[in-house]
Structure formats: structure tokens, C-alpha cells
Amino acid sequence: MSLSPDVFTYVADLVQRRAGIQLDAGKEYLVEGRLQPLAKEAGHPRVDAYVRDLRVAERPADVQAVVEALTTNETSFFRDGTPFRLLTEHIVPALRGPNGSLPRLRVWSAACSTGQEPYSIAMTLADCVGPDTSVEIVASDLNTAVLERAAAGEYSRIETNRGLPSSMLVRYFDAEGTGWRVREQLRRQVTFLKHNLLEPPAFGGQFDVVFLRNVLIYFDLPVKRQVLEHVLAAMRPGGFLVLGAAETTIGLDDGWERVPLERGAVYRAVPRVPAWGLPTATSPVPVVLPAARGPLTGAVPRTAPPGVLPHARPAHVPAGVPAPVIRPITPAPVRGETR
């Protein structure tokens, strides 16, 4: 029993349009395997019939379910190790002001899957910034099912055994059932939002650090470019981008400069408005934004992308206030929870 070509073509096209995900010929088995449960649930014994049925109406909920089923959500705590060490050893120190100050730190985990990545970031930062730094971590994904799991912060033993040092486990998790749950104090630091990387983020910009790991690999070249452009617009100049070990911006977008740190795929957003005398991305001292000295609304060139210009914002409005349409994903009540 295999998928008919027209059904595969339709699904591949749908997933490409909605999520940017490339499904090359030969992935028929993947489509069939991932959609089988959906077909069954809808009362269709065969995926072919289910998809043909779906195609007639293309109801948003059905489309979303198909797209979600075709995302790959593989992840782990402290995946690849190095990026998290580089966060502590290089990125955070580089973001500190000349006197070592770091009043706030905004981090975006841009394809967070089931949450191991943002929680690993939160644990790393808890160990390397003090109480004087207000940390905000936004974590997003296209897949609402993984987001709900992420927000609940519950992990099986197999998941915590993958990449999470026991010392971190006992500090930041509580035993729950046969697994573990991220403590509230850490969960509170992370806001989970549904977001499609094909679109510009609606939750404000000015991120100091963006983790965009192991997701560009699913996209073709034009989509990679588009995604990187949206991410760049959401960063403060001089902010850091952390990619997956096998990913690069090189040849895709010249808004980034590779930071030569070991094997780590770390890039820095090149400041786009050198006329303001911003230091270059390579300068050791972090950028002091004109915004710190007051709004420069009048001086904002109209051609620059809005996301890179905090200065256009009145000083009393904090950057990155979530747009009202975005509702954070909050965990469903957990069985047996006493807190």
C-alpha cells in the first residue's frame, strides 16, 4: 500500500507553502507513516482517501494537523553542548556593557520543539547572569502540540537522560510520576508562542540572542533567506544568532557575520546603520544603542527595516511587548498537581 503520486505532490506542496518544509521525492513513506494516525482518526482506512477528502475543503484545522504531523521535532537538552558553553563564555560577556552591566537579556528560541532548548538556555543563564539582569526567553514553534508539551515542562526519564546533567536535573526539576517536571521558577522565564518562521514575528524585536537550530535544514534556499531576514529584523544590531552544527548563513544573507568560536555556528547581526557610529559587529565592546540616551525618532531613516530600530519607539514603551493577538501557550492543568 503506497501513496499515489498526486496525493504526495499535493501534501508536499501544502507543507512547503505553509511551513517551508521540503519533502523531496522518495519521502512518500514518511508522509504515509505520519498521516496514517490522522487518517484513522478521521475514519479513513487509507491515507490517500483522507488526503483527497481534506483537499476538497482544506479546512484550516485539518491543514494545521497535516503540517504538524510532518514536522520533525527531534531535540534534546543541551543539544550539541557547545552552543550553551559559548553562551556563557562568549556571548553573554560580549553583551555586557563597558562596566560589566547587563540590565536585560532577551533570547528567542525560534524553533523550540518540546522545550528542551529554551529550558537549557534558561538553566545556562541562571548560572551566568546575576539577579541584576532581567532575563526574558521567548520560545516559538509552528507545532502547537509540541508547544503544549513544552509549556507543561514535563519530561520522561528517557528525555532527561539525554543531555541533561544530573546536577541540573536536581536543581531545576521535580520528580513527578515516573518522570520530571521543570520547576515553576524556570518555567516562568519562558514564554511559549505559536509562530511560523515564514512570517515576521509579531512579538516584537530587539533580541540579544536568537537560537535558530536544526530547522533551516528543512527549508530550501529562498525560504532560508526569508527566514533569516525575519530573524535579522527581530534582533538588535550586534545581537547573536546561534545555528545548528550543520547550518550556516554564509551565501544566504550578508546581514550576518560569522563569529569564529570553535565549531560553534555563531553569527552576529551586522549593524545596518553605520552612520550612527555604531561599533562594527566585531568590536569587543557591545553596542551602546542611541535609545539608551533617549528616543531618536526624528533621525530614523525610513528605508531601514522596522525591527532593527528600537529608537523609533518612545523610550517608555519597552521593546518587544507581545502584540495583543498573540496568546502565550499555558500548560494544561497537570494531573495530581498540588501546587
Binding site: S76, R157, I158, N161, R162, G163, L164, P165
Partner: peptide, 11 residues
């Protein structure tokens, strides 16, 4: 599982 032990060795 063997994978879990291996993951610890990686760590």
C-alpha cells in the same frame, strides 16, 4: 536503555 547509558557517557 543502552542509549540512555550512552547519552550519559556523551555528557
Amino acid at each position: 536503555t543502552p542509549e540512555e547509558l550512552r547519552a550519559k557517557l556523551e555528557l
